[in-house]
Design a protein around this nucleic acid. Structure first.
Lengths: 244, 244
DNA sequence: CGAGTTCTTGAGCATTCTCAAACCCTGTGG
DNA sequence: CCACAGGGTTTGAGAATGCTCAAGAACTCG
């Protein structure tokens, strides 16, 4: 146990994340905590490359922010998801080794990486953990679907508002402050996440600010009235499956 | 075995689907084939309701077409995915019992439903099957991500072309004819799948037809030059993971 | 044949885009 | 300590893609 003491903090938030959706017995949690893992530091804007010894490892975000993206043939970037501390970021590679998306740090980030083999062994020995991980992946899937809806059906204001609501709700679920978001995204990135141009994002943020839906103080975004914002966004947290 | 003979055909296409992504030993395939399942007939446009005894059952599409959708707060429908024969349509409910999407038949369809308990038992006893199913769900996830990209970054022509390419590729993978698609979608549905208005879909289809990218004969859409269409769509089949 | 659904077309409009340029921070080196 | 570089933000102006409303045509099915 002592040898693993430094990891306690690393995978603690991961356990918390799993427990949002799944019951995890304390001994299962301990088994997760004592997984051999390597801490990895990623500078802002640098990419998580999965080659060599990394291809056979999964990564949990410990602190910071990351995002997943994909390019269209003509070079336009679409951000596909955001990761907050505690999130498993590339556990899909446990099942599909071919990476089709890029993964990049939005801020300086700390990651914990675990060997596929260790994780698979744990999942084999502890079905509850296997279930919890699969369930977490299914929640991600539900979030992807909501993003299709967001980008496909909502106008610029609602789209951006929805993104803010999601970030806020997911941070809240991990017990972070959720009314004062140190927005990890540049306007360019918000644009790529919502399928808008960065100029239009800029103008829309201005409107949202002027109309008091949000309150900007530099890079900090505050949500003075979360309920109103959710209403504007058409945000229904059900798809995040934060209950259970 | 004889008692299960009628099911052979029902779950045969499901096995074929799993084998696209995963190696399945013959005895595992047999175990799937002999799963107790109920055949379910669904008329065009009718919804698959998961209540009562259906909440604890999963469904495989045997013949026909289905789609998954979600509504925005203000009542706009977004189609989130299409299902072709062989596809598991609601296996996510194995892990997240709360259904957040609707499931509806696009054409008269035949479904095979399997009890969660039987499926879980099979997955417990045969890890290769469990893996294959999880992998299939991860492929779905990758498709959702591609739809975010499609709706977020491509213009109307490319968006619709991309949808056609995907349907064609997925049908081909299941050994259906893929150059003459009896398009299961109305223009309204194409609109809801691509985040466009049905009027714009109509006009864009007209252009695609006039410019020989596609060839329409009533409800039949032919792809006379799939490669050119893929080029137009920026379609790269990698995200479908059709290789093993 | 008639009812309902789907498709088609027109016209005007709105949201959002692109291009271009200026501005503002923040960190760095002279 | 100032100048400058570079990323990010802001604003303007004009254009375009795609939307809504409206109505008629065509197809499908009982």
């Amino acid at each position: 146990m002592t040898a693993n003491a430094p990891f306690d903090r690393s995978l603690g938030s991961f356990i918390k994340r799993l427990r949002i959706h799944s019951p995890i017995a304390d001994e299962d949690a301990d088994a997760i905590r004592t997984l051999p893992c390597r801490v990895l530091r990623l500078r802002q804007n640098s990419q998580l490359v999965r080659e060599g010894d990394l291809t056979d490892r999964c990564v949990v975000l410990v602190s910071g922010f990351m995002h997943r993206f994909r390019f269209s043939e003509d070079g336009r970037r679409q951000i596909l998801s955001l990761y907050v501390p505690g999130d498993p970021v590339d556990f899909d590679h446990l099942f599909l080794p071919v990476a089709d998306d890029g993964l990049q740090a939005l801020r300086d980030s700390l990651l914990a990486s675990i060997a596929h083999s260790d994780l698979r062994k744990l999942m084999r020995e502890r079905p509850a953990v296997a279930d919890a991980i699969t369930r977490a992946l299914q929640v991600d899937s539900s979030i992807f679907r909501e993003w299709i809806l967001n980008v496909g059906q909502r106008d610029a204001r609602a789209r951006i508002a929805h993104l803010l609501c999601e970030i806020s709700a997911r941070l809240q679920a991990q017990d972070f402050d959720f009314e004062n978001i140190p927005l990890p995204l540049t306007q360019d990135q918000i644009a790529d996440a919502t399928g808008l141009s960065s100029i239009h994002v800029n103008r829309t943020l201005k409107v949202l600010n002027a109309e008091k839906w949000i309150e900007r103080r530099g890079a900090l975004v505050m949500l003075p009235n979360p309920d109103a914002l959710r209403e504007l966004a058409g945000f229904d947290a059900r798809y995040l499956h934060l209950d259970a």
